[in-house]
C-alpha cells in the first residue's frame, strides 16, 4: 500500500529530476546522432550549386572507394593492432612490478600516472621535439647510443614508414598510466589466499601468474583492451598536431579524414558518412566485448 502511494507521488518527480540530463542528451547526443545518419544519405555540400537531394547509399559507396578513407581505416586498425597489445603488456608489467614494490607503490603510481593528466595536444608537441630529425634529436640520439652507433638518424614524422609508429609510441606513453592504475586495482583485488594455497601446492611464480593472476585479471584486461581499441579508432589530436595525416597519408585516420571532408572541403554529407562509419566500428567493438564477457559469465 505504501509503495502505491509513493509511486504515484513520485511519478512526476522522477521525470522532473532526470529532465535536465535527458534534455541535454536528447539535444546534444540523440539529435546530432540522428542528423549524422540523415545527412550521410544526402549530397549536402556547403557552397555547392546542386540542390539538396536524398542520394541513398551514394556517400558510403564514395567513402569506401576513396583511397584516403580506406587508408585511414587501415591506419586506425594498424594503430589498434600494435598499441593495444603493447600498451596493455607494458601496463601489466608495470602494475606487477608496482604491486610488489610495497612501500613505494604510491610514489611509483604517481610517477607513471603523471602523463595521464597531460592534455594530448601538449604531449604531441613535446614528442615532436623528442622525435626531431638528425643526430641532435632525443630519440635519434637515444637509439644511436643503444645501438652503439649503428642507428641511422631519421626524420620520424616525415618518414612514411616511421610516422605512424612514432605516433603510436607517443600515444602509448600518454595512455599506459591509465591502464596501469586500473590493472593495479585489479591485482590488489585478487584474494591473497589463492597465492598462499598455490604456494603450498608447490606452484612457482610463473605458474601462479598463469593460473591465478591472468584468469583473475581476465575481465579487467578485456576491459582495458577494448577501451584502448575504441580510443585507437577515435585517434585525432596527435595526428592533427604532429603530421596532418602525412606523409603520403601514412598517418591519416578516420576522424582526420572526416574533419578534412566536413570542414576543409565543406563536404558535410561525406564527413557525416565517415563519422557514421566510425560509430559502426565502435558498435562492433562493443558487441565483441559483450560477447566475450558473456561467455566468461557462462563459464564462471
Amino acid at each position: 500500500m505504501a509503495t502505491g502511494t509513493c509511486s504515484k507521488r513520485s511519478l512526476p518527480t522522477g521525470l522532473l529530476l532526470s529532465a535536465p540530463a535527458l534534455l541535454g542528451l536528447l539535444l546534444f547526443v540523440a539529435v546530432p546522432f540522428t542528423l549524422a545518419f540523415l545527412l550521410s544519405f544526402t549530397n549536402l555540400r556547403l557552397g555547392s550549386p546542386l540542390p539538396l537531394e536524398w542520394v541513398g547509399w551514394e556517400q558510403y559507396r564514395r567513402i569506401f572507394s576513396d583511397p584516403a578513407f580506406l587508408r585511414a581505416i587501415a591506419n586506425n586498425s594498424l594503430f589498434a593492432l600494435f598499441v593495444v597489445p603493447l600498451q596493455t603488456t607494458a601496463a601489466l608489467v608495470l602494475a606487477l612490478l608496482l604491486n610488489r614494490a610495497l612501500g613505494a607503490v604510491k610514489l611509483f603510481r604517481t610517477l607513471f600516472f603523471l602523463p595521464v593528466v597531460f592534455p594530448l595536444s601538449l604531449v604531441a608537441i613535446v614528442w615532436m621535439l623528442i622525435l626531431a630529425p638528425g643526430p641532435n634529436g632525443m630519440m635519434n640520439a637515444a637509439m644511436e647510443s643503444l645501438s652503439l652507433g649503428a642507428w641511422e638518424s631519421r626524420d620520424f614524422l616525415r618518414d612514411p614508414d616511421w610516422a605512424l609508429p612514432a605516433i603510436m609510441l607517443t600515444s602509448i606513453w600518454q595512455g599506459v598510466g591509465f591502464q596501469m592504475v586500473i590493472l593495479l586495482a585489479g591485482l590488489q583485488a585478487i584474494p591473497r589466499e589463492l597465492y598462499e594455497s598455490a604456494a603450498i601446492d608447490g606452484a612457482g611464480r610463473g605458474r601462479q601468474f598463469l593460473h591465478i593472476t591472468l584468469p583473475q585479471l581476465r575481465n579487467t584486461l578485456i576491459f582495458v583492451m577494448l577501451v584502448t581499441t575504441m580510443l585507437a579508432f577515435r585517434l585525432f589530436d596527435q595526428v592533427q598536431i604532429m603530421t596532418q595525416g602525412g606523409p603520403l597519408r601514412a598517418t591519416t585516420t578516420v576522424m582526420f579524414e572526416a574533419v578534412q571532408a566536413a570542414f576543409t572541403r565543406q563536404q558535410v554529407a561525406k564527413g557525416a558518412a565517415m563519422t557514421v562509419a566510425l560509430f559502426g566500428i565502435v558498435l562492433i567493438i562493443t558487441w565483441i566485448q559483450r560477447r566475450i564477457t558473456r561467455e566468461d559469465r557462462e563459464i564462471a
Binding site: 549524422a36 545527412l39 577515435r234 572526416a258 558535410v268
Partner: peptide, 12 residues
C-alpha cells in the same frame, strides 16, 4: 547513448 563518442556526432 553511452557508446556514442563525440567524434561520431561532431559534424552535425
Amino acid at each position: 547513448l553511452m557508446i556514442i563518442p563525440l567524434e561520431a556526432i561532431a559534424v552535425p
